[in-house]
């Protein structure tokens, strides 16, 4: 059993680098899986309502997000619900240009498939949401999705 003898065999041995590619690939895969493209910094408080009759948003490239809620920094911006588009606060009148901008980014054939996802804090009053919806109707962005969390306790599936 000389194979397992603790004899002095090697001097100045080096650490094998044979598995370095594996590690690198592992890291690569990990980052590929977890990286989310263009996550915006939320400037509004977002505690979404819960619902059970929900659907998944399939193609994220076709979704434009509108965030509405009370500003995080309420000392600076007050407590009135604000609209956030991309990374900044916006007015209701900025919604239409935002949708048009999104439309220029996709192939023309996909424009009717664009979905607007409304991520709204549940304590927001409907007034501002109705205004945004009217604005969306004006620019014919009719497919919307009220973003919600999944209601856990009362599931309907049989």
């Amino acid at each position: 059993m000389s194979k397992f003898s603790k004899g002095k065999k090697s001097r100045g041995a080096t650490i094998s680098t044979a598995s370095l590619p594996d590690i690198v690939f592992m890291l690569l895969f990990f980052f590929m899986v977890t990286t989310v493209m263009r996550e915006v910094d939320l400037k509004v408080k977002l505690s979404q309502p819960e619902a059970s009759e929900i659907e998944k948003l399939e193609n994220k490239a076709l979704v434009s997000y509108i965030y509405i809620g009370e500003p995080n920094d309420s000392k600076k911006f007050g407590t009135e619900p604000r609209i956030q588009l991309n990374d900044q606060f916006a007015k209701v009148s900025d919604v239409a240009p935002y949708i048009e901008q999104k439309r220029t980014e996709v192939v023309e054939a996909l424009i009717p498939k664009l979905i607007t996802s409304l991520k709204v804090n549940k304590e927001t009053k409907m007034g501002v949401i109705t205004e945004v919806k009217q604005e969306l109707r004006k620019v014919q962005a009719l497919k919307i999705n009220y973003s919600t969390l999944e209601k856990v306790e009362r599931k309907r599936r049989r």
């Binding site: 592992m26 895969f29 990990f30 899986v33 977890t34 989310v36 619902a51 009759e53 929900i54 659907e55 998944k56 948003l57 994220k60 979704v63 979905i115 996802s117 919806k133 969306l136 109707r137 004006k138 014919q140 962005a141 009719l142 497919k143 919307i144 999705n145 009220y146 973003s147 919600t148 969390l149 999944e150």
Partner: peptide, 23 residues
């Protein structure tokens, strides 16, 4: 790799899909 693949949850967007009436 398998551990991270299993534990990483892709945050899927869920919501109520609705269609607004045309203007």
């Amino acid at each position: 790799l398998v551990f991270f693949l299993v534990t990483t949850t892709m945050d899927t967007d869920l919501g109520l899909a609705r269609r607004l009436p045309p203007p």
